[in-house]
Structures are given as structure tokens and as C-alpha cells.
Design a protein around this nucleic acid. Structure first.
Length: 356
DNA sequence: AAATCGGGGGG
DNA sequence: CCCCCAGATTT
């Protein structure tokens, strides 16, 4: 953070003027929701645009408007119809919120989209930024917005350090969004900032040569505009530990099919055990193990956690019947079984084969 | 494979 | 306050 919000208002106005002027010449003006920008149409487009880019949204938006031309039609429709037209867009909770907000507007606002920012923000699925976008784009009211594009422009221009997901950083960006907000031309300002972030001040390789704000932009001056906004700190993944038993008998190894959902769903893996290998063997087979051998542990990374696997080889004197358990099977050790195997399981099978 | 997007919900 | 999530696209 190098600038101060307290800089003279006149400076902020200059920036707004530049963006508004840029928007006249380089912004988008003919998107379907821009031609008749009612609050209802702008609302639907904004929700769709939160998750999908413009070219994909257009056909969805048009089908949506044909089926639900106005707010009350949407409110009266079964939510399943709404979800049907949403299918392919993902984030179905947003479609549900859209529908339930339409019901609220029908029942509590007489079917007219509310025009007070507080009332708009109170609707399900609409937060401060979306409320500001709807009222400025549809009605020309001056409200700040702070979507991903605007965050990027402001964070770079003012070199606002830190990840915008942090409350303090978001608060600072909102302050800046308020400070830059012009009293007039709210539509051009809002649309211009979004377009600037989407087409010029892009996440990677921003086109500063064609940016109306390059002069005065702290990020551009630094030569490394991509340093802002700060990235989400990637949290160290928690370490989970498990013990895998590798039961071996008569040249075969026992694998179990994992449940269909969850980690390694439907793949084959070694049994994971809590109690001692010998106790497991006695409970499961009524057999005393011939030998157990604890191997060096190995790690496997998942998106949400890291798994430390403690492999334990368990030799049995003979191969027990695996009665009434179609989810476990003794596979010959001399070649890899032709079933889906979790990566660390294949690795362990290779080692087992080599050391057999 | 990882980062991203705005709002909602829970700790 | 912070963390996590939904899901598909982009890098």
C-alpha cells in the first residue's frame, strides 16, 4: 500500500474520467443484457457472469430470458425448471438463490425489483458487489463494486499488498473503490472497470501499453504488475497417517476394493489397519502371522492433505479362504493385477514383487 | 496440477 | 474473524 485514500478528490476524478472515456471507445456496449438493461436482466447476467465467461453466458442468458421473460414468471416457475436451464453452467446453488430471491421479490416487493441498495443486498445470492453492479448498470445509481476484475485493477494501481480474501485487504480495496467512484456516469464507470480488468489488466500478461491508467499505476511503474493482487497463501496440507497391511501368502497378495465414494473410490488397495497386524490376522483369518516386516513409510499428496503411509508386510503360513467377501481378492504377485490401483499401492506392489 | 470466481455458512 | 465450499475454465 503506497497511496493514500486521502489524496485529493480531484485526482480520483481524473481516474474515473479516464476509465469512462476508455469505455466509450473500447468497452462492450452490445451484449444482450446491455440492450435492455432492466434490473432483472442485469441481475441474471451478473449471476451467470460470476462463474462463466461472456461468450458462454450469451446463449444461456437468451434461453433463460425466453423461458423467464420477467421476474414474476421466474418466481412462479418450479425451481426444477430453473435448474434445467442452468444445467451446464454449474454452481446450482446460484440458480436456487436466483429463484428464491425472485420469490422474495414477488411476495415482499410487489414483483418489482427493489431499488434501494440495502434491500437488494438482502436478497439471497446477492452481496455488496453484485448489488452495486445491478443498481449502477441498470439504474445508473452510484455504488462501488468489487468483483475480481476491479480488485485486480485497484490492487495493481495502488499496489495493495496481500491476498484480497483477507478482511483487511478487502476493506482497503473497498475504500479505494469508494474513493474512485464518480458521482455521474455510474454505468460507464462500473462497466469500464469490469471491462478493463477483463481485457487489459488481465491476471497474467496485462497489456499495460493499451491501458488508460498506465500513467499513475503503481504496478506498471514497478515493472511487475503481476505481483498484485497477492495470491492466496497455500496452506500446508495437513498430514494424515495410515498403516497399510500387505498380506502375502503362497505367492499372492491380498487387495481390497475401496468403497465407490471417497479417496481412491472403486480402486484396489491394501487393507488399512488400526490395530496390530497380528491382531488383524487373527481376527480376519484366525491365523498367526509367520512374519511381519515394517517398511519405510512413503508419502502421497492429495489436493487437501498429505498421506503418510506406513507399509507393513504380513506373511501368512497359508492362503486363507476369503469367504463371502467379493471386495477382497488374492492377486498373484508375479505380475501387476489388471485392476484400478491407487498410485502408492502400485508402487508398493512393485517393491513387493522385487523383494519376493 | 493449480488458481480462480462472489456469496453463504459454520466454527 | 477465518476457513471451506461449489464446479468449471484458464493458465
Amino acid at each position: 500500500m503506497s497511496d493514500s485514500v486521502a489524496s485529493p478528490a480531484i485526482v480520483e476524478k481524473v481516474i474515473a474520467q479516464k476509465v469512462i472515456e476508455w469505455h466509450r471507445h473500447h468497452g462492450r456496449h452490445d451484449l444482450p443484457w446491455q440492450r435492455t438493461p432492466t434490473p432483472y436482466r442485469v441481475w441474471v447476467s451478473e449471476i451467470m457472469l460470476q462463474q462463466t465467461q461472456v461468450t458462454t453466458v450469451i446463449p444461456y442468458f437468451q434461453r433463460f430470458m425466453e423461458r423467464f421473460p420477467d421476474l414474476v414468471t421466474l418466481a412462479d416457475a418450479p425451481v426444477d425448471d430453473v435448474l434445467h436451464l442452468w444445467s451446464g453452467l454449474g454452481y446450482y446453488a446460484r440458480a436456487r438463490n436466483l429463484h428464491s430471491a425472485a420469490v422474495v421479490i414477488r411476495d415482499e416487493h410487489g414483483g418489482r425489483f427493489p431499488e434501494a441498495i440495502d434491500a437488494v443486498e438482502a436478497l439471497p445470492g446477492i452481496g455488496r458487489s453484485t448489488a452495486g453492479a445491478i443498481l449502477s448498470l441498470a439504474l445508473g445509481q452510484s455504488h462501488p463494486i468489487l468483483d475480481g476484475n476491479v480488485k485486480r485493477v485497484l490492487a495493481r494501481y495502488h499496489r495493495v499488498d496481500g491476498w484480497p480474501g483477507r478482511t483487511a485487504v478487502a476493506r482497503r480495496l473497498w475504500e479505494l473503490a469508494e474513493a474512485h467512484l464518480p458521482e455521474r456516469d455510474a454505468r460507464a464507470w462500473t462497466q469500464g472497470m469490469m471491462d478493463l480488468g477483463a481485457t487489459v489488466c488481465t491476471r497474467s500478461r496485462p497489456d499495460c501499453e493499451h491501458c488508460p491508467l498506465a500513467d499513475g499505476c503503481g504496478g506498471h511503474a514497478s515493472g511487475e504488475p503481476e505481483r498484485w493482487p497477492g495470491k492466496k497463501p497455500k496452506k500446508a496440507r495437513p498430514l494424515r497417517k495410515t498403516r497399510m497391511l500387505m498380506p502375502v501368502a503362497e505367492g499372492r497378495v491380498l487387495l481390497q476394493r475401496r468403497p465407490p465414494a471417497g479417496i481412491w473410490g472403486g480402486l484396489w488397495a491394501f487393507p488399512e489397519v488400526e490395530d496390530s497386524p497380528a491382531a488383524w490376522s487373527r481376527t480376519r483369518f484366525g491365523l498367526e502371522p509367520e512374519a511381519t516386516e515394517t517398511w519405510a513409510s512413503l508419502r502421497h499428496g492429495f489436493s487437501h492433505f498429505e498421506l503418510e503411509i506406513q507399509p507393513i508386510r504380513l506373511d501368512l503360513p497359508s492362503r486363507p479362504e476369503t469367504v463371502a467377501d467379493t471386495n477382497s481378492e488374492w492377486f498373484p504377485l508375479d505380475h501387476p493385477p489388471e485392476v484400478g490401483l491407487a498410485a502408492p499401492v502400485s508402487k508398493l506392489l512393485d517393491q513387493l514383487r522385487r523383494r519376493h
